[in-house]
């Protein structure tokens, strides 16, 4: 399963430990994380489910291309990182 981990800056607002989660797209992995942590969703996604403007997600070393539907593919063993962009603070 892919592993999802978060910027430590999110810990100021809510607990979000790294976890191995099922899913073959970014949105599927995130949805699995939201099931156990429903508050997390609005910190990462806006009202329409788009990735927030100043949040970045990388799959391994590549930023996701589809920020609105988050359909980028992920594979077993991939690292999915949620970062806070340096803009927008």
């Amino acid at each position: 399963m892919p592993r999802l981990s978060f910027t430590p800056n999110l810990e100021r607002h809510l607990s979000c430990p790294s976890a191995r989660l099922p899913g073959d797209t970014v949105i599927a992995v995130l949805t699995a994380a939201f099931e156990g942590n429903p508050r997390l969703r609005s910190y990462l996604l806006d009202d329409q489910g788009r990735l927030r403007k100043h949040v970045n997600i990388f799959v391994n070393n590549e930023p996701v291309a589809d920020r609105d539907f988050l359909t980028d593919r992920v594979a077993d063993g991939d690292e999915v990182f949620v970062f806070q962009a340096l803009s927008g603070g």
Partner: peptide, 10 residues
Amino acid sequence: WPPKKTGPSV
């Protein structure tokens, strides 16, 4: 590509 959503967000 990439596809876009157009709805509002607070």
